[in-house]
Amino acid sequence: MSKIRIATTSLAGCFGCHMSFLDMDERLVALLEHVELNRSPLTDIKHCDPCDIGLVEGGLCNADNVHVLREFRANCKILIAVGACAINGGVPAMRNHFNLRECLEEAFLNGVGVDNPQIPNDIELPLLLDKVHPLHEVVHIDYYLPGCPPSADEFLSVLGDLLEGREPALPKNLLHYD
C-alpha cells in the first residue's frame, strides 16, 4: 500500500507546533511506516506535490502566507489548521489592535536599542497584511487542532483517525487552547 502523503508548513507561527509534532519521539518511527512527508520544513521540499493531508501552523500576516496557504489548499485533499494562531490568529493577531505603521515604527524606529532606525523595504520581503487573519477566513479548512501548541498526542489522535479512515474526533481530555 502506498504511503499517505503529508505536507506541513509554518506561516505566521513560531514553529512551536512543528516542535510539538516532533515530540511524538519514537512514535514517529511507527508513523513514518504509514506516512511520507512532502513539502515541509522537515524535508526542505519547496513546493507541494498532490498530498493527502496538509498541516498548516500559524495565521496569515503577509502576502506570502496567503500564497503558501492557497498552494496547500490546491494540493491537499484534507487541510488541517494546527494551533491557536492558525485557528484565531493567536499571539501575532495582538498587533491587530494597532495599525500597521504604528507596529513598524515601534519595532524599527522607536523601539528600545534600535540601531540605524529604518523600516525594512527590500523588494524580496513579502508585503505585510493590514491585519493578521486566521486560516479559515481565506480558504476552506477541513479540521482544527487547537492548542498552543497541540500536544504530540493530539497530532497522533487526529492523524491516527485519518489513517484508519475515521472522521477525526479529538477526545475531550486532549482538548486545550493553551
Partner: peptide, 11 residues
C-alpha cells in the same frame, strides 16, 4: 467540544 471560532474574528 469547540475546536474553532467558525465566524470571522471581530478583533
Amino acid at each position: 467540544g469547540m475546536l474553532d471560532g467558525h465566524f470571522p474574528q471581530f478583533f
